[in-house]
Design a protein around this nucleic acid. Structure first.
Lengths: 229, 229
DNA sequence: TTGCGCTGTTAAAAAACGTTAACCCGCTCA
DNA sequence: TGAGCGGGTTAACGTTTTTTAACAGCGCAA
């Protein structure tokens, strides 16, 4: 059987949010509803989502800023914005953050569904997010199971080791921003969490050093970059 | 498998931008869409692009000015301009900044693609931008790995050393503009960053002095120039 | 030629990172 | 209930990288 696609829906209007969630669930999507931007970001960082629908005007963290945060660490997951306003300026800002589509309220739910399926077909999210098995150089890595298949026994990673490694691998050959990573994994980018992260980088380096073609490179003042030679 | 070519597309008209991006992606290019000139410039400086498509009329920074900024530090990456106007004056200005082609709206997407592939074939961006291995005089230099193969042990460069050397090498025999370099590497061209840059120039000179045919020359009040005799 | 801004260079200070080990806290199980 | 364990944080110390300071020399315009 095919896996349900996980959608993160961020909408502060309770009625509309519930309505959309119910509708999309009836269409066989696995919907998680967040009622403000802050909460949506935390939820996104915790779970695995194949698709995002963000209302633009939300308390605490607006849809655009939320999308920007998401895009710091995830360049691919499609994002659709919802907005009550029809202002062109807004549209620009939305697409600048890497939006895939844009709906102006009021819209029909069928239209939303049509656009979702169109984007999914176009971007092929299904294959890309489903394998659950990655390779870091020669080393097999299963983020879902938190298993790193190093020489000999497979090593079971701890929660933090796993979150950090997964981000590094999914952003390999790009700089993984320090602050963004801290906010995603530790929830806060204060000094001590930063030091904690450095400790975990050291741990990961030790784990990965059996394959000398792997390097976790530091970009001074910016973050880390996983490169495979 | 062949690596996808990275295209930076700067287009403020959302519909057209999305349309082109989608089309080019379907033709197996890795497209990044920017919706104003300012954003496009930042994106360009951060990432590695093999090709640029700039709309001429854009908010914040128009296509020509954007191209001029890009050309300050990068003489090679091909640029195509898009414009709604059919004014000859514009065309001239576009080509003056080092444009490789020029399309007047409306144009067919097939035509765009044809021109892109033509330019790619002609300029051979693929080889030039993909090897990841350069030579500074006799010295091998791998910017991706931040390695400089000086006599004896390969020297591991620091983040700043590497960014600066990469710019110098990619612009060898041309003047590397002081302000533009500061903005690209330090993010700001204030006095102290300028002094910092001078310190790094001194370091690079020391590193490269084993090959006497290499010289980092100062152009008073303008910038630096790497020349290989 | 003289003065001032620009550059060259070295050294000291400051910030950022690397690593190890001690510590803390919640949980489990004897 | 309290010893042990696993996961994570904090402390401590060392190293590397970057910035700032200080002083010396250079180059161009008035």
């Amino acid at each position: 059987m095919e896996k349900k696609l996980a959608i993160l829906l961020a909408e502060d209007d309770i009625n509309l949010g519930q309505l959309l969630a119910t509708y999309l669930r009836s269409k066989n999507y696995d919907v998680t509803l967040a009622t403000d931007g802050q909460q949506a970001l935390e939820t996104f960082n915790k779970g695995k989502f194949d698709f995002c629908i963000f209302d633009v005007m939300m308390p605490k963290l607006d849809g655009f800023s939320l999308a920007k945060e998401v895009r710091e660490l995830d360049k691919k997951t499609p994002i659709i914005f919802l907005t009550a306003k029809d202002q062109n300026e807004d549209k620009l800002e939305g697409f600048a953050t890497g939006a895939d589509d844009y709906l102006t309220k009021p819209f029909s739910m069928d239209e939303l569904l049509a656009r979702i399926t169109a984007i999914i077909r176009r971007t092929g999210v299904v294959e890309s997010n489903e394998s659950g098995e990655l390779y870091v150089g020669k080393i097999k890595y299963e983020p879902e199971l938190r298993l790193l298949h190093t020489a000999g026994e497979p090593k079971k990673l701890t929660t933090k080791e796993n979150q950090l490694l997964e981000l590094l691998v999914k952003n390999q050959n790009e700089v993984l921003d320090r602050q963004a990573t801290l906010r995603a994994v530790w929830g806060d980018d204060n000094y001590f969490n930063g030091r904690s992260m450095d400790v975990y980088i050291a741990k990961l380096r030790k784990l990965l050093k059996e394959d000398p073609s792997i390097e976790i490179m530091n970009i001074h003042g910016k973050g880390f970059k996983l490169v495979i030679k």
